[in-house]
Design a protein around this nucleic acid. Structure first.
Length: 594
RNA sequence: GGACCCGUAGCUCAGCUGGAUAGAGCGCUGCCCUCCGAAGGCAGAGGUCGAAGGUUCGAAUCCUUUCGGGUCCGCCA
């Protein structure tokens, strides 16, 4: 069990002090007290708003409370100095001995450092990727995959019991069209002379998926079933047999193959799912009907007619009575249809079943990572979860904005026809899995991103992938020179020689890691890990560079074995924290730069 | 027409859920390598946080309006 991190420790001290000073202070005011790093580091290590938030309930001047609080906090073993400031802040300067004393625990906990407790006892389901199984994954899926995976890792790090989930859209018209496309490749494998365009005229919706990736599927079908699914045809050799005789098995076979390739792509990206949920299976289990019935029992389903969409009304719009869900009662703009005119469930209805299933599986919190094009879907899904769980289950939806791939300063156009379609596998081949993952996390999810293929491979200060990896490699290179130093031996080293501002800055950064994990998890923002690591790397490189001008600041000094041990402890802790952070991001640390 | 996301230094972006004099990298300017850790280092300039109102002790952050950019918008998934 980790001891509380430094912010939690000081927060507890501040609360104690406030309770001691003002026994009458209500708990809801106490709950608003925070301890944070001040924006300006010259103000100290931490600052608290305790006086500001309790001034009104106590009917006292904030400055007076700040005075009293500062007096009470100063001079403990942890706090060297507490001073009232500004409108009523109390600035806190930590005792440096205390800070140094926290380092051994970092070394000893190793990869576990930063594990938090905010998620303890909570089960969270993170659903991401969920690409339709109609073809290979492309860069458009990539950001969601990385963000979702890192977010899941982050939540696990913060103490949640996490399930990584992939929802397979294997029920609708898209996979039907996919099956027809695979069937064409099957006929080709048998030797049909029919052209794509001829075939397109024979099947509903035409030939929608013309990619080469279905060729092996067609071959496999031919190997497995011979010509049993085809019809001898004088003109082309082989032609279309009644779909009733082959469509279902061909569809199942093709989806299975597509999912295999998706799993491979994900594995190349370092993503492994815990659970795959099939939309078709939910329908077979009658989960959709059941879920709608549940909503109906709550009085949230009715027959009604929707207003036409505002603005551009579709040509063929006509008012129609439909089965609707009252999502507008939960903040959605309008109610939403549950059944198509043929009586089958809409995609939305199926997704309601999916969420009812999640809730039934006992999750306390649901998280989705979606592309920006699903933005319009957010409110209705939140409405569903609120309605089904009576507000007991939380749902957070992280929207990832578009990624623009740039090469040689030119945007790469995404076009299947022009052959400039960038698959995920291509991207990984080009820059490597680690660079892809790290780079995808160097923007917050809701900002658009440019993925510059050249920049990502660049070895310079402004490429954070390189910069962070380089810091780790430098740490490892120093440690390799002192092979006797282990985490255990370094954890026992006296640290009182660590007094240089650059050393202390690095130490403070290391000690801030658990708090960063906590707040990033709470905000569902994995990109913060990347920014933290860049800052940590910057502190480390800064210290390294100091050693260039001032030889007494080098890590290894033959004449000063004690100081060397202390610095190695700092270096080992730095490497350890970088590894812990990269682990959350799903990036493999490097031992040396090449 | 409506919904959602973004708008912060010349450029690319952070800003820890409302805190103090708004930060980083790149670029720019000026210094620093015959050698010792320069794929670099140090210092400096650069901002009415798109605009206008509002909420309060306090706003880049919350609300309203508005201007740009993006993603979408009834039985598609």
């Amino acid at each position: 069990m980790n001891e509380p991190h430094i912010y939690a420790a000081i927060h507890a001290e501040v609360l104690d002090a406030m309770r001691g000073l003002y026994p009458a202070l209500a708990e809801d005011s106490i709950a608003r007290i925070v301890v944070e790093p001040p924006r300006d580091a010259t103000h100290g290590d931490m600052a608290t708003n305790a006086a500001l938030v309790s001034a009104k309930p106590l009917r006292l001047a904030p400055q007076a409370i700040a005075q009293a609080l500062a007096a009470r906090l100063a001079g403990t073993a942890t706090i060297r100095e507490a001073t009232p400031a500004g409108p009523g802040f109390v600035n806190i300067r930590l005792d440096e001995d205390w800070l140094r004393s926290r380092l051994p625990a970092v070394l000893l906990s190793g990869a576990a450092y930063g594990e938090g407790t905010i998620g303890t006892g909570k089960r969270v389901d993170v659903e991401y990727v969920s690409a339709n199984p109609t073809g290979p994954m492309h860069v458009g899926h990539c950001r969601g995959a990385v963000v979702g995976d890192a977010l899941a890792n982050l939540l696990a790090k913060a103490g949640f019991d996490v399930t990584k989930e992939y929802y397979i859209n294997d029920a609708g018209a898209q996979v039907q069209a996919l099956a027809y496309a695979a069937y064409f490749r099957y006929l080709q494998a048998l030797g049909t002379t029919m052209s794509e365009d001829e075939y397109a005229l024979l099947v509903p919706g035409g030939l929608q998926y013309r990619g080469e990736y279905l060729v092996p599927v067609g071959k496999a079908l031919a190997e497995a079933h011979g010509d049993a699914y085809a019809l001898a045809d004088a003109e082309h050799g082989f032609g279309l047999r009644d779909p009733g005789e082959w469509l279902a098995p061909v569809r199942a076979f093709t989806i299975e193959r597509m999912m295999e390739s998706i799993r491979e792509d994900l594995a190349a990206l370092g993503v492994t799912m815990d659970v795959f949920i099939s939309e078709a299976t939910l329908i077979e289990r009658d989960a959709v009907t059941t879920a709608i019935a549940t909503l109906d029992a709550k009085g949230l389903v009715y027959q009604g007619i929707l207003e036409p969409p505002k603005g551009k009304t579709p040509e063929d719009w006509e008012p129609r009575e439909q089965t609707l869900f009252r999502s507008s009662q939960f903040g959605d703009d309008t109610d939403r249809p549950l059944r198509k005119s043929d009586g089958s469930g809409t995609y939305f209805a199926n997704d309601i079943a999916n969420h009812a299933d999640k809730i039934a599986r006992g999750f306390n919190a649901l998280v989705h990572v979606w592309g920006a094009d699903h933005g319009g879907y957010v409110k209705r899904m939140q409405a569903v979860v609120k309605a089904l769980s009576d507000g007991a289950v939380t749902i957070d939806i992280v929207l990832c904005q578009i990624v623009q791939v740039v090469k040689n300063g030119e945007p790469v156009r995404m076009s299947k026809r022009a052959g400039t379609y960038v698959t995920l596998a291509d991207l990984i081949d080009e820059v490597g899995k680690d660079a892809v993952r790290f780079t995808m996390l160097t923007r917050k999810a809701d900002a658009q991103m440019e993925f510059d293929l050249d920049k990502v491979k660049e070895q310079s200060r402004d490429n954070p992938v390189f910069y962070v990896q380089y810091a780790h490699a430098r740490c490892r290179s120093v440690l390799r020179q002192m092979p006797d130093a282990t985490a255990q031996s370094l954890a026992a080293a006296p640290l009182d020689t660590l007094t240089d501002p650059a050393e202390l800055a690095l130490l403070r950064r290391i000690l801030a890691f658990p708090r960063m994990i906590e707040s990033a998890a709470e905000a569902r923002e994995p990109h913060r890990v990347a920014f933290y690591l860049a800052d940590l790397a910057s502190d480390f490189h800064g210290l390294w560079n100091r050693g260039r001008e001032d030889a007494t600041l080098r890590f290894i000094r033959e004449d000063e074995p004690a100081a060397t041990q202390a610095r190695l402890a700092l270096v080992a802790a730095t490497a350890s924290v970088i590894r812990a952070g990269l682990a959350v991001m799903g990036v493999t640390p490097v031992e040396e730069m090449r």
